[in-house]
Structure formats: structure tokens, C-alpha cells
Simulated assay, not measured.
Amino acid sequence: MKQEILHKEIDLIQAVITRMANNSFLLKGWLISLVAVILALSKDTLLSDDVTYLSFILCLPVLVFWYLDAFFLHKEKCYRKLYDWVIENRKDSDEYLYSLNYTRFENEVEGIGKVMFSSTLLPFYGFTFLVLLAIGFHNVYF
């Protein structure tokens, strides 16, 4: 019976981890689609003043998606800590049984700001952000 409870509990936590990872994946797809479609629709004006403002405006969704991705990755890390805690402690205790409250582990993982500049998110979002800025500044100064 105790083993059955453990399996159900870790299945619940794993489902949340999977959902957070899926959200992160979807955000990246939406961002690339958004930027690609807008730049493709303005391909005839890529080196004109019209796209200058567009590229600067597109920086805002990049920042928003970047933050949201870091948010989901942060929560995923919290749930991984919860998962580890359940595996380690469930055999000895029924404390927090079936609790999906991750907040007690938030101090044990990196904050959202630090996750934003992690080695996984910075190259993806930073590169996109820099390309948009480069397009905008190129059109302003050249």
C-alpha cells in the first residue's frame, strides 16, 4: 500500500514537471514563429525605416517570452526538488502526503532572474534579442 501511494504521488509530480517543460517548449516555438512571420511579412522592407520600429517593438515579446520561459523553468526545478524530497522521505514519513506545494523548495533553486541568464535560455533569447536590436540599429545608423 505504501509503495502504491509513493508511485501515485511521484506520478502527480512528474505530470506537473512534464507540463512545465512542455510550456517552455511551446513558448520557444511561439516566439520563433512570431518573429519569423513578422520578419517574413516585412521582407521587402527589411532594410527600410518601417522594419526599424518593428524590430524594436518585437524586442518586447522576446523579453516577455524570455521571462515566462524562465518562470516555467524555475517552477520545474522546484517540482524536481519536491520529487527528490518525496523519493527520499516518503518511506519514513507521511508528512506533506500528496502535497504539490513547491514553495518550501523555492529558496533551494536559482531565482527567475538567474534562470533567465542561464546557459540554456541566454543563447536562445539573447541571440534573438540581439538580432532584433542589430536590425533596428542598422536601419537607424546606416
Rank of each mutant, 00 (worst) to 15 (best):
N89W: 02
I38P: 00
A40N: 04
Y79D: 05
T45N: 14
K8A: 13
A15N: 10
K75F: 00
I5R: 14
L31K: 04
L122E: 08
A134I: 13
A36M: 06
N23C: 09
M20P: 00
S33K: 01
L26Y: 02
M116V: 01
M1W: 09
W66K: 04
D92T: 11
F71L: 14
L41W: 11
E108H: 10
L58C: 07
D69N: 14
Q14L: 06
I87N: 14
L97T: 05
L97N: 05
K43P: 00
L6S: 07
G126E: 02
N23H: 11
E76P: 13
H7N: 12
F25S: 11
K81V: 07
I32G: 02
E95I: 12
L34W: 06
S24A: 09
K28F: 05
A134Y: 06
A36G: 08
D94A: 12
A134W: 05
L54T: 15
E95L: 15
I135T: 05
M1R: 14
F72G: 05
D69M: 07
L97C: 11
F124D: 04
K77P: 03
V140S: 01
D50V: 12
W30Q: 07
L63T: 02
F142K: 09
F127A: 15
Y102I: 12
F72P: 07
N107W: 00
L41H: 10
N23Q: 09
G29K: 01
V62L: 08
V109D: 03
L46G: 03
M116K: 01
I112T: 13
G111S: 13
R19A: 15
H138P: 08
Y67H: 14
W66G: 05
A70P: 00
F65V: 12
A40E: 00
H7D: 15
T128Q: 10
F65W: 01
T120Y: 09
V51I: 12
E110A: 14
E108A: 12
E76R: 04
Y83F: 15
L122T: 04
A134F: 08
T128R: 05
G126N: 05
F137R: 00
E95N: 10
V140R: 00
S99N: 03
L39D: 01
S33E: 04
